[in-house]
Design a protein around this nucleic acid. Structure first.
Lengths: 234, 234
DNA sequence: TGCATTATTATGTCTATACATAATAACCCC
DNA sequence: GGGGTTATTATGTATAGACATAATAATGCA
């Protein structure tokens, strides 16, 4: 069984995937260990490890020390979705981006930023080809970012300014939908009650909140992504 | 500069992340090459490579041969979201899962499955604690999966049967929202026009479509995920 | 000057070896 | 037989060295 001599990890990954899809290794089954597989494929264990680890990262395999490697019972559909800067998202669609600040004032936020503290409240409208694209309702934590108080956010939007001046360590996103409130319907070029897509995002720099933003998208918005990738060889 | 002697890739990754967040390596900047960094950290190049590659996978760095490694200009928020089996999603929330088949018949699908072919059309309702959770509208490609024709889908739901009998190689998901159609409003325990979250998913086995499913969730549904992970050391 | 060819360079990957670590299996003693 | 200790095992990771590859920079020629 030292025949095939596949010695690049992607080819090995493909072969392992093939065996999983072909049910040679059905869900839940423990597959041979790295040493044996490396011998079978005629490669080093490190290479085998690379291939199997990548598949484990993708959710296709489950690995545990001593217990071995098994095919995931529920080949969990793990999708990675990139959340782009709004400008980029619009320009990638070949549309012209524009931005309008609606309001900007200092106040005490409700809850999203954590314990009550002074924050900057910014509302704005992002447009694509002059048509409403998304309404932004943002709170910026002034105790984390005092320099934000000097920013007008009239030309440079808060999203991009924050990315340049306050990179976050981690964040938290929620996707939902709601009936557009009467107050925002006209801005988004629609009528009150129309279903709209909403994303609510909070970002932190270590333990301190940076910003919490809600984006209400104009009707028709959707997010698209993929699971896995089409196999190269058919 | 051979002092620190950090020789595990995760510690190195953290240190690199620290430098990025601390703006020692601002966005867009090219960072030293692997050989130099390995020397600085007192580790092997392979270890340095592992750390930097992981960060590149996470979207924090951009790497190109010869050009070198640079800090991503837009630290693209790359979220990985797991799309679970509905039963699991419901049971994970501590609720009791139940399933009701609504209809099942053979017909020619519209477009989602590709060129017109015979398909099985299944509609069903997923419930959590007996309350409507999601309405499922699914087409199963019978030319790819003829054995699906013999499945009643009365007890075992199509989602789980397909996972067990027809693993997919890749797929495609779209998240959006809409006003619930009058035909489904009652089933979902709501009134026509209410905004509801919708996911449309198509999966393939190599070049052949397996199934295309639309899930209309009951009002209030949302998807939650995170970007990055809270730093260990604060 | 402009274009094609050739060096250079940083990342990408593979190898063989070694040790660390977590988890199970085996064992031994009471 | 039960419970705690030890051995075994598979993955996880680190290392040094080597070659592959892509992309840029330098060079040379018309």
């Amino acid at each position: 069984m030292t025949q095939p001599q596949i010695n690049n990890w992607q080819a090995i990954q493909n072969e392992v995937l093939r065996r999983i899809h072909a049910r040679e290794w059905p869900p839940g089954q423990v597959i041979p260990n790295e040493v044996d597989l490396a011998a079978e494929f005629g490669c080093a264990r490190a290479t085998m490890n690379r291939a199997l680890r990548a598949l484990a990262d993708a959710g296709m395999l489950e690995r545990r020390r001593k217990a071995g490697t098994r095919v995931a019972l529920h080949p969990v559909s793990r999708a990675t979705l990139d959340i782009p800067v709004i400008r980029q998202e619009i320009e990638d669609r070949g549309l012209k981006y524009s931005y309008n600040l609606i309001a900007r004032n200092t106040a005490t936020p409700l809850a999203s930023l954590g314990p009550a503290q002074k924050a900057l409240h910014v509302t704005a409208l992002h447009c694509a080809n002059a048509a409403p694209y998304a309404y932004e309702d943002r709170w910026i934590n002034l105790s984390t970012l005092p320099e934000a108080a000097n920013q007008p956010f009239t030309v440079i939007n808060a999203n991009e300014w924050l990315l340049m001046h306050a990179p976050f360590t981690h964040g938290d996103i929620r996707f939902s939908c709601m009936a557009v409130p009467a107050a925002h319907a006209k801005r988004l070029g629609t009528t009150p009650g129309t279903p709209v897509f909403v994303t609510q995002r909070t970002t932190w720099d270590h333990a301190r909140t940076i910003t919490s933003v809600r984006l209400i998208f104009a009707p028709g918005y959707s997010i698209h992504t993929t699971i896995g990738s089409p196999p190269l060889a058919d």
